[in-house]
Structures are given as structure tokens and as C-alpha cells.
Amino acid sequence: MSPKKRYWQSLRRIKNLLFLSSLVISITNIYTASAHETKIAADVGATLHVEPNDNPRAGEPTQAWFALTRKGGKAIPLTQCNCRLVVYAQPHTAGEPALLEPSLKPVAAERYQGIPGADIVFPKPGIYQLKLSGKPVTQASFKPFQFKFEVTVVAGSARNIQNVQDVNDVPIQGINTGLGLPITVLAIVLGTGILFFLVQAVRRS
């Protein structure tokens, strides 16, 4: 095979591998963006973020915070909101007492200062509902609101999941690490493969 033909074949391989790498990056970016759920009620919007990485684990401390914004994008700090957070195990019936009622505190997160946040320890794996309600401390700064967010809690460390059942009394058969780990592993494997083929293509050219 002539050097010129090998060169063009190597160039085509590199283009294909670059396309695959951009596809992997876009998939991981989609996952990251979708982790922050935003809802709107009346003239208030709320974005929920749960640490760590929107992948909370049962029995381990978790910080949840709510980026509250009024119409126009101005943030609503906790000092301006008479807010209340309650946590229910899903499914739950109307009138059922809340499983948890964490105390809210002002937190600084990303570009927000003093927004409502809470430290939560989910007792078991499963699906929970976080219900945040609030009304303005001062008159007519925003309308009263209520938001409901669903959060999936996975099993904690291996030593904490022996004979554990989830919040709906379903036995846990193993460690459920959520979607974050499989996507990360896939990105690493594909990235390593792409790097290997790029090196081989350069050597052959």
C-alpha cells in the first residue's frame, strides 16, 4: 500500500474516532444536565440539587439545596422565604405524616448565596418525595409556592447493605450505584479505546 493511501486511511480512522469521542462527551453531558431538575409554580422557579452528584446513598449524609428564583431570574434567599421541607417515602397517601422534616438553612451553592438547603440522611434505598413549600416573609415579593421532587436513593457502602430492604420493603440484592457510575465507566473504556486506536493510526501513517 502506498504511503499516500495509508495516510488517507489513517485520516479517515481519526475522523471516525473523533466523532465517537464527541458522542461519548455529549452523552455524559446530557446525563449531568438532566440531574438538575427544575420546576415552576406561579412566579417562582426551583432547581433541586442533591449532593453528592445527585446520587444520594442510604444511611449517608446528603445535602439537598433548592435554587429558588422569582420571575426575571432573581434568586430568593432563605431570609426572604418562610419555607418548609418535608420528605415522604414513595408511594405515600394524602394525609400521611412525613417521614422526615429536615431543618432548612441558608447555603451557598454555585452562583447562589443563602438559598434554602438541608442535610438529610435517607434511612433506606428507594424513591422519596421532597416537598418544598414557601411563602414570602415580606408582603407580595412572590406568590406562595409548593414543589414536589422525586429522588432515587441507592444503597450505601457494602458493609451497610446486608439484609437491607428498600423503602418499599423490597430486598436489596446488591449495590445499586445508579446511572452515574456506569456512564463514567463507559466513557473511560471508550476513551481508552479511542486513544489506543489513535496511537495505532499515527504509527501506521
Results as ranks from 00 to 15, higher is better:
Tyr31Trp: 10
Glu96Tyr: 03
Arg159Trp: 15
Ala108Thr: 10
Thr152His: 10
Lys71Pro: 13
Ile194His: 03
Thr28Ala: 02
Thr138Arg: 08
Val44Ala: 10
Ala140Asn: 12
Arg13Pro: 05
Leu18Trp: 14
Ser205Gly: 12
Val151Asn: 03
Ile40Trp: 11
Cys83Leu: 08
Ala158Trp: 15
Cys81Lys: 00
Asn168Ile: 04
Ser103Asn: 13
Leu99Thr: 02
Val199Ala: 09
Ala33Gln: 13
Ala94Asn: 10
Gln9Cys: 12
Val107Thr: 02
Gln90His: 12
Thr79Met: 03
Ala75Asn: 06
Ile183Met: 07
Leu179Asp: 05
Pro125His: 01
Arg111Asn: 14
Thr152Lys: 07
His92Ile: 06
Gly73Cys: 08
Thr184Gly: 14
Ala187Gln: 05
Thr28Phe: 03
Phe122Lys: 04
Leu198Phe: 14
Leu132Ser: 07
Lys4Tyr: 15
Thr93Asp: 13
Thr192Glu: 13
Ser26Thr: 08
Glu101Gln: 15
Gln129Val: 11
Arg57Asn: 02
Pro3Asp: 08
Phe147Ala: 02
Ala158Asn: 12
Ile27Trp: 01
Trp65Asp: 04
Gly156Lys: 06
Gln9Asn: 15
Arg204Gly: 08
Pro102Arg: 00
Tyr7Val: 07
Lys71Asp: 13
Lys39Cys: 06
Pro56Met: 04
Gly73Lys: 06
Gln165Cys: 15
Ala94Pro: 11
Leu181Lys: 13
Leu132Pro: 09
Pro123Asp: 07
Ala94Phe: 12
Phe147Pro: 04
Gly191His: 02
Gly134Arg: 00
Val189Asn: 01
Ala158Phe: 13
Pro136Gly: 11
Leu20Ser: 10
Val189Glu: 04
Lys71Ala: 13
Gln146Ala: 12
Leu100Val: 01
Lys5His: 14
Thr93Phe: 08
Thr93Met: 12
Arg111Tyr: 14
Gln129Trp: 09
Val121Gln: 03
Pro171Thr: 06
Ser34Pro: 07
Asn163Ser: 12
Gly45Met: 11
Arg70Glu: 15
Asp54Tyr: 11
Asp166Asn: 14
Val87Cys: 01
Lys148Gly: 12
Ser157Asn: 14
Asn163Leu: 10
Lys131Asp: 11
Ile40Gly: 01
Pro52Trp: 08
Tyr88Asp: 05
Pro182Asn: 04
Ala187Thr: 04
His49Leu: 09
Ile27Thr: 01
Lys71Met: 15
Asn29Cys: 07
Asn168Ser: 13
Leu99Glu: 03
Ala140Met: 11
Ala67Ile: 09
Gly174Thr: 04
Leu181Pro: 09
Glu96Trp: 07
Gly73His: 10
Pro77Leu: 11
Leu11Val: 10
Ser205Leu: 15
Gly126Lys: 00
Thr192Pro: 01
Asp54Asn: 13
Gly193Trp: 15
Pro123Leu: 01
Ile188Pro: 03
Tyr112Ser: 04
Leu18Ile: 08
Arg203Ile: 14
Val189Pro: 00
Gln113Leu: 15
